[in-house]
Design a protein around this nucleic acid. Sequence first.
DNA 1: GGCCGTACATGACATCCGTCATGCCGGGCC
DNA 2: GGCCCGGCATGACGGATGTCATGTACGGCC
Lengths: 201, 201
Amino acid sequence: MIRVLLAEDQAMVREALAALLGLEPDLEVVAQVARGDEVLAAARAHDVDVALLDIEMPGATGIEAAAVLHRELPDLKLVVLTTFGRPGYLRGAMESGADAFLVKDAPAARLAEAIRRVLAGERVIDPALAAAALAEGANPLTDREREVLRAAADGSTNADLAATLHLSPGTVRNYLSTAIQKLAARNRTEAVRIARDKGWL
Amino acid sequence: MIRVLLAEDQAMVREALAALLGLEPDLEVVAQVARGDEVLAAARAHDVDVALLDIEMPGATGIEAAAVLHRELPDLKLVVLTTFGRPGYLRGAMESGADAFLVKDAPAARLAEAIRRVLAGERVIDPALAAAALAEGANPLTDREREVLRAAADGSTNADLAATLHLSPGTVRNYLSTAIQKLAARNRTEAVRIARDKGWL
DNA sequence: GGCCGTACATGACATCCGTCATGCCGGGCC
DNA sequence: GGCCCGGCATGACGGATGTCATGTACGGCC
């Protein structure tokens, strides 16, 4: 039997996925968690073979959780699952040691199949998404630029940003200006949208 | 047997929910669709008792689909399911004739229970969400204001908006200004965020 | 030690944005 | 018919935003 850990914050979706996997004769969901920062403890406690990680979770993202698991339990196989097929997510997941990357609008059969294949030593990713990730290159933003852009996403003014980030208003403007140019946007709002779409935020 | 129609765009989630409902002895998922605009035809073709509608779908939202079903098939029970527990969504669903409103982070058992209860003639909603919906009142935005705000969400400039909406740039400014004031925001970005959070977009 | 990239800052400038006053038109409503 | 509301428009004003030039400081790298 393949022992599976399931990490997904939405209870209904999590339990539905568990029901789905429970229909497979060779799979067994032995642990479920709703937060990214509870994944490691659960994996240790239940001696699992593969972890299924949603990206959007409180506590820690599935990508962050994957990095921790990969470091602490190198034999554990990692399948990252996400609603959004953003190339930056794929890149981040792969760099964190994930063995498979699936989007939730793929057919359900793909999930059990991916679990079996990673246990056989294969890597499973959508070829189209892989091409997109390679085509667009890596995240061009520096840590600071990303931080300021993320903080600006909610409509904060330059003065707000300066206060919360402990910077001068002029510096905030400069970071936003370079971010806007790197992303080929025309203003901060467009920059936020582009960075989000690519999984760079 | 209770005959269920399942409308949800993400295939993996849809099939997982079907697996979950399939475990219930008195429930039978007889049709699945991935788009809001395919719901009515499927409901007619399969003689269903209850429709489970996700809100975020291409073609038409689950709320729009609910309105159509309520008009065309008044005996059909409607359960609206959503990721985001936004008060405006609840209000919209109820006004469209929904019998139940569930968020996806509720436990899975709640789903089958809700289906049985709506068939027994009950209405099922989260009391906390109902309170929030009543507390915040109705959407204060006019159709035009909402339309302009929605179009502005991607970072378009006033000139862009004027061109796409066939308005003068000054009129665009006016609509955005009134929307910003009604939402107690400081700029369009904040206005978009607030309207989104409340389910008014 | 020199070079480069990043973080941080300032000041000047042009443009964009948000507000306000004001006006016109058409549709409900009493 | 008068009143109010919503859609549409213009012009003026101040403040916010985006760009650019320029500068300092620190760390890594060859």
